[in-house]
Amino acid sequence: MSETDVQPERISGVVGDRIAGAVLLVLAVAAWSYSFNFTAGFMQPVGPGVFPRLVCVPLGVISLYLILRPGFNQRWPHRAALIRQGCALALLTSYGAFLEPWGFLPASLVTVILLIRLFGARWKPALVCGAVLTVGLYGLFEFALGMPLPNMPGLDW
């Protein structure tokens, strides 16, 4: 699905798959036991907890299999990449938080410019493209599609 598929940088998944298997096994057991809290209604041969339990059984069994027989993983990111990804997630999370209080235009402008910087562009193209993208999206949604986006506080039109 991506470029990494063309030249697969595959590594042994002994660590990654075992961690994933363990997490999923815990999830399966937890979901199984939690499902007993779903009280069955009147006149229902199969209550709300049965189907989740039915799913948890194969999930748990195959997770166990994954722990015992780990497969392959893609190469995990290096530290610089992890930092970039972390910054992008932090940026987007704060975008979600600031979108409504600040309004669409200022929040998006700041986010897009910083995002383009994170993706490796210089300041000048980042500022220009960020502004174009923000205004373009605003125009598309606010005027062409008629979908109201959050306005800047005090600037209602």
């Binding site: 999830l27 499902s35 209604g41 209550g47 709300p48 799913v55 999930l59 195959i62 994954l66 497969g71």
Partner: peptide
Amino acid sequence: LSKSFIAACLGLLLGTVGLDSVSSVPRY
């Protein structure tokens, strides 16, 4: 194959989140 099955089970489990359509019991 086993990883595809894990993914499918995970999806099915995530699909049960929310109000149960028959009994309206909230799940997960």
